[in-house]
């Protein structure tokens, strides 16, 4: 187990290194730079700026300098937000992004899985049909369409929720719904089909044959088996939700990290692009790692020491 964790951590560092390298060179291969778009910048000023941010250094030197500072957890100064470092940008946006993200993850786990079980228990009866109809819609409609529709109905027409910002807690409702819509639907569909399959397994018949209570049969014998495929998919789903959050934060004008990311690309704000990419990459690989650990805990057939 310890050996497995160490191995995985090394793999994570290599993965991150490759992501950093690829992003760095791809980013620099885009024509233009952080200061080329601005009008009326005297040549002397542009030169001074380049010098200040070491943009006139050879690329390989910039690359190694950047690696060195990243290794010290310093993501450098932002080129466009004057006087702010990328670390500060992330720190400022993180509370909002994290809240939306974590609420969405909680929603898919706390609501999505029970919905799936409920539908499986009522297989082919009307509650199942209704729930699965909604879930099919949720899977097929993209999050920005859901977001826009939610905004139109609940903010514009009904006025129940604020249309933008998170000054009030109600501001979180629509973004969380829009962000988790796909994953919520997907998880409940998957849980349903997985549970239905588990219910037909021989060991479930054994459990009933033992005279166990229905709650014990469903939770102890059914749910753990049924959740294996769900756990497998939850990692990538969380990742998909995080990448989706750029769009959602834009639609709902949330002061999170995502909106900086979109802006920084058009601005060629090199350090911000790099910083936020690295930040999301770290979250992603860590989530996948945690999911793998949980997987090993649920299923004894998976030995984590290999």
């Amino acid at each position: 187990m310890t050996l497995y964790v160490v191995k995985r951590l090394v793999a994570i560092i290599i993965t991150l290194f490759m992501i950093i390298t690829l992003t760095f060179f791809l980013m620099h291969s885009i024509p233009g730079g952080p200061f080329t778009g601005d009008k009326n910048v005297p040549e002397a000023v542009a030169k001074a700026l380049s010098e200040k941010y070491h943009l006139d250094d050879p690329l390989w030197k910039q690359y190694f300098d950047y690696l060195k500072s990243v290794a010290q957890f310093d993501l450098g100064p932002s080129f466009k937000y004057e006087g702010m470092t990328v670390n500060e940008l992330i720190k400022a946006g993180l509370p909002v992004s994290a809240k939306v993200g974590l609420l969405s993850v909680a929603l898919i786990l706390i609501v999505g899985i029970p919905i799936g079980i409920f539908a499986a228990l009522n297989q082919n009866k009307w509650p199942d049909t209704l729930v699965m109809l909604l879930a099919t819609l949720g899977v097929t409609i993209p999050s920005f369409v859901i977001g826009t529709l939610l905004l139109y109905v609940f903010s514009l027409k009904l006025g129940w929720t604020p249309a933008y910002g998170v000054e009030q807690w109600q501001g979180y409702i629509l973004p969380v719904l829009a962000l988790s819509g796909f994953s919520l639907s997907f998880v409940s569909r998957l849980t349903r089909s997985s549970m239905i399959e588990v219910f037909q397994q021989d060991y479930m018949r054994t459990a009933r044959g033992k005279g166990l209570r229905p709650s014990k049969i469903i939770i102890k014998h059914g749910l753990r088996n049924g959740l294996i495929p769900v756990v497998t998919i939850v990692g990538p789903l969380i990742a998909a939700m995080l990448t989706g959050s750029f769009v959602i934060e834009k639609i709902f004008a949330l002061p999170g990290i995502g909106r900086h990311f979109v802006q920084s690309i058009t601005n060629r704000d090199y350090t911000t692009i790099m910083g936020i990419t690295i930040f999301y990459a770290v979250i992603l690989v860590v989530i996948v790692f945690i999911v793998d650990l949980i997987y090993g805990l649920i299923d004894p057939r998976i030995k984590l020491n290999k």
């Binding site: 060991y203 054994t206 459990a207 005279g211 102890k220 088996n225 004894p300």
Partner: peptide, 26 residues
């Protein structure tokens, strides 16, 4: 009432021992 009888007064062994035990429980 059947639950009190199953596994207690009348119990059953099934055909396929490979699948009749829950794979995730000791």
């Amino acid at each position: 009432e059947m639950r009190k009888i199953r596994g207690n007064e009348i119990s059953m062994i099934f055909q396929d021992p490979m699948t009749s035990l829950n794979p995730l429980i000791t």
